[in-house]
């Protein structure tokens, strides 16, 4: 179980995340919504510890993960897999190597430096790819795939990490609607079958309503709503998007953010 207690992040003057507290159980698919700049990415990055929180406590099953360093930190990152809007694969490496990057944190340095992976790892990588219908492209270069395919490869990499928790930062923002559904279906399946919590930043309300078991809305760094999708009323949305139900600048900003 993931627990956040009064977690804050300050970048100089801006308070990106403001005393956020929430818990997340196994099997939950939590969608985080909010305007661009509301602090959604920063929140996820703090959970994975790509960004250090300024204040507050982050725990997993009661153990503090907010102050880890060195090897324990890397192990925590391995356990909480992250998926990005721009997929962030290495385009020049083939698909299977991209997936196998998910295990380099666990394997001896020397062998992974010469790109040697045990047959068992390769087999698992192929099965993860197959589960997402991508095994046929295993030897293709990642850069030659379409966006939806690349995101599925990124999910396969995340799965190879055998994560306890999956974080996805706008995973479908750069995809067309069909591919967006494919990717969201995959995340939902992971959440149900492997019984891990999945936290997804979304800018599409419609997708959030359709897939999430719970929705958290953020505004100016703070949580302004936390509950089931049905409870998300127009009044709440007005507060979140400040009068606009469709955050028109979300898409244009998201590319800059991901960089």
């Amino acid at each position: 179980m993931l627990e956040l207690h009064g977690v804050s992040k300050r970048f100089g003057e801006t308070l990106a995340v403001d005393k956020v507290s929430f818990t997340c159980q196994r099997g939950e698919l939590v969608g985080i919504i909010g305007r661009s700049g509301a602090g959604k990415s920063t929140l996820l990055r703090m959970i994975n510890r790509l960004t250090d929180p300024t204040d507050g406590r982050i725990t997993w099953d009661g153990q503090d993960v907010g102050h880890l360093k060195g090897r324990p930190l890397r192990q925590w990152r391995r356990r909480c897999a992250m998926i990005f809007q721009q997929f962030n694969l290495c385009p020049r490496l083939d698909v299977i190597t991209n997936v196998l990057v998910g295990v380099v944190a666990e394997r001896p340095l020397a062998s992974s430096l010469v790109k040697f992976f045990p047959a068992a790892d390769r087999a698992r990588a192929i099965l993860e790819l197959d589960a997402l219908d991508m095994a046929h492209a295993a030897l293709q270069r990642a850069g030659t795939l379409s966006g939806g395919q690349q995101q599925r490869v990124a999910i396969a990499r995340a799965m190879l990490q055998e994560p306890d928790l999956v974080l996805a930062d706008e995973p479908v923002a750069s995809l067309d609607p069909v591919n967006a559904d494919v990717v969201m279906d995959a995340l939902q399946k992971i959440c149900r079958e492997r019984n891990v919590p999945v936290i997804v930043n979304l800018h599409s309300l419609e997708i959030a309503r359709r897939y999430c078991t719970r929705i958290v809305a953020m505004s100016k760094g703070a949580i302004v709503f936390d509950g089931p999708p049905v409870a998300l009323t127009q009044a709440v949305l007005d507060r979140v998007y400040a009068g606009r139900t469709t955050p028109d600048n979300a898409t244009t900003f998201s590319i800059v953010e991901a960089a």
Partner: peptide, 19 residues
């Protein structure tokens, strides 16, 4: 467990399993 996974992967993508 591992041999079983291996066998399944071999069926899916043999050339990717063993370069």
């Amino acid at each position: 467990m591992t041999p079983e996974i291996y066998a399944r992967a071999l069926k899916v993508a043999p050339e990717a399993l063993r370069p």
